[in-house]
Design a protein around this nucleic acid. Structure first.
Lengths: 366, 366
DNA sequence: CCATAATATGGTAGCGCTATCTTTCACTTT
DNA sequence: AAAGTGAAAGATAGCGCTACCATATTATGG
């Protein structure tokens, strides 16, 4: 993955339309066709109640006939509201952000907003450029993944005074709004869960463990809690390759090599956990008897695989939906009562760690 | 006598910015700050070679200081080119379209285009509305998934004379450009493959088998080929639930109930195949000895699961990249030599069907 | 040293739309 | 019947930017 992103000045040739480039139908065309003023057509489209029913019918008919499509640029320029919400996610390569995106889309589309998509590749510098590019389309609001941004990004956003929602994580100082859950607390909860299960030699395995702020926070909570439980050796198996099932096997391999008598591993996501599980299968390592495996995000594979993998259910789609709803409310002039929402998470216990005592289905945290 | 007005759609309140809404910095602000004309600033930003180096430096510094961000709306309005490419995919719920989206994004972002995202939910009517909305942002081009559209959509697109790329499927009559592979041929190839393996009682299992045009085509090729091989009974197991691993188990269950002595199943995608495989595991059905399973798309899970699942590798990311590249070329005024590209597919043989004779790794088709 | 051509900058007119104000006119009200 | 009312439609002025053309400045040649 290379972090090349919307360059500010890629001076390409002027865009050329296909040959018989026909000018788009304008409001004026419709107005003349019906024999009314442009404002009347504009109103008929945007504020139907302000135009008499028969006239409106005639106008709508003409719109249909001529194939008129409102030019959002002109409309946006004139009215100062674009109905565009850019959304920045870390990457499209990791399936975890898709449900969130879907949640956002489902709400925003319903309210007539268009979303502009961008990825940060987990880099605040890329995010900075991205936000800059986003602001160029006079958005009505923004949704950013994560709460860690460059100072410049924050300054830029604060100055615009636009409603911004930061999602997937929590922060003390949200730019405006914030919906997510605490990754630190996930680390704490998982470590506590594994300790209470009686495991002593516990490891974490993941990718991008240095640049993905959220995984950094999970690791921090995880390590701190292990320390609190008196376990001194908290092994972190790292990799910088992109997430994938196959990588789970590699991580497991590296882990076993350096920490042969590990008892339980917390993987940074379920794909990795699944890959590790498949590898255990090949190596005849029994799960959970020889090795307990725990995943993160409660993706579908966690529950389907045999043995099913204990995971941390995170409300990704819900986060997207709630974030979009907050934004819409805000834009409708009804600021939501809470500018910050902690949607929490749950440990979903399954067979991959069920060797111990407790076997409750869920363990609500937060 | 004015009668009551039937509302068309509830127009929301005008979007309101957060309280101290500060007007954005404009070109003019920068120009005044530097003490030059607006055109000079505009040029310094867009056509750097047209402005003397010292002046440009001064201007860029002012831009930086004031935090100026070009208003793409105004720019688009004035220049007639927006650097926006809307992309329509069927759904965000199915992981298969994400790599394609990623491919598109990686290329377009590099060239400074922004993408507006929309989903059609596999419905041409929704696509029609979506395209309409898309056209409102004076896009420089469009990317649509699939080649089947409503007459109105086609008319609308043809009239705009915009470069459109239809992806993921092939058609005789592309609107402009077309990148994908033949789903009918996939059906043919899979049926032929299974027949040649010696299977006789062969079934297809999938979802949205009636409205997803691409799966309809695969089924058609599949059925026709089975018929050609003299196999009369081609069982199609259908469901309308969204794709998921869990659904694979359900489909398998229904299938076995109605067609107990089935020998081989072609699933509409690898998630379904994986779900079926897990179910086989639970029921102690041996794969491939009792039942051969084949997937589609060659998602990562197909190769990782045990036993690994034979699948059809489809160049999804590549399709996205190529489509975006064609579009960019077209917009740079260098129309690509071929307006249609068949990127083909491969059958990747793995253990889930390896009972037969052939064990070649790949089988290039088309 | 002036004609001639570059080159560098500024001025102006919209792009298509909506906010805002103004006009028109049917219908009340007194 | 004159004045008042409010709804419906029109006229006008930009939104912030770039295309285009005009102008100022400097470079080149004879």
């Amino acid at each position: 993955m290379k972090p090349t992103l919307p360059e500010t000045s890629p001076p390409e040739k002027p865009a050329e339309r296909l040959e018989p480039w026909r000018k788009a139908v304008t409001l004026n065309d419709v107005a003349r066709h019906v024999g009314v003023g442009t404002m009347t057509v504009s109103r008929a489209l945007n504020k139907p109640e302000k135009v008499s029913t028969p006239l409106r019918a005639k106008i709508l008919k003409a719109v249909e006939e001529l194939g008129y499509v409102q030019n959002r640029f002109a409309s946006g320029l004139a009215s100062g509201t674009s109905r565009i919400i850019p959304v920045a996610i870390p990457t499209l390569l990791h399936p975890v952000y898709i449900p969130m995106l879907e949640g956002i889309y489902s709400v925003l589309a319903q309210h007539g907003y268009q979303i502009i998509l961008g990825t940060t590749e987990y880099l605040v510098t890329v995010e900075e450029q991205l936000v800059n590019a986003f602001l160029g389309s006079s958005p009505d609001g923004l949704i950013l993944s994560g709460v860690d941004h460059s100072a410049k990004t924050i300054k830029l956003l604060k100055r615009t005074c636009l409603p911004v929602v930061e999602v997937m994580d929590l922060t003390d100082r949200p730019i405006v709004m914030n919906v997510g859950f605490s990754h630190y607390e996930v680390g704490v909860a998982v470590a506590r869960y594994l300790c209470q299960k009686g495991y002593q030699r516990i490891a974490y395995a993941g990718t991008l463990t240095e640049i993905d702020f959220r995984s950094v926070k999970r690791i921090a909570g995880f390590q701190q809690t292990l320390k609190d439980y008196g376990l001194q050796y908290h092994f972190i198996q790292r990799s910088n390759e992109p997430f994938s099932i196959g990588l789970g096997a590699k991580l497991l391999d590296g882990l076993l090599r350096q920490y042969p008598n590990v008892e339980a591993v917390f993987f940074a996501n379920d794909d990795l956990a699944a890959g590790a599980l498949f590898e255990c299968c090949r190596r005849a390592i029994r799960v959970p008897d020889d090795l307990a495996i725990m995943g993160f995000n409660d993706q579908e594979i966690a529950g389907s695989i045999v043995p099913a993998v204990t995971s941390v259910a995170t409300p990704r789609r819900e986060i997207g939906r709630v974030a979009a709803q907050m934004l819409v409310k805000q834009l409708q002039g009804q600021p939501p009562p809470d500018l910050q929402l902690d949607l929490g998470f749950k440990i979903v216990e399954r067979q991959s760690t069920a060797a111990g005592k407790v076997t409750s289905e869920c363990d609500l945290v937060q």
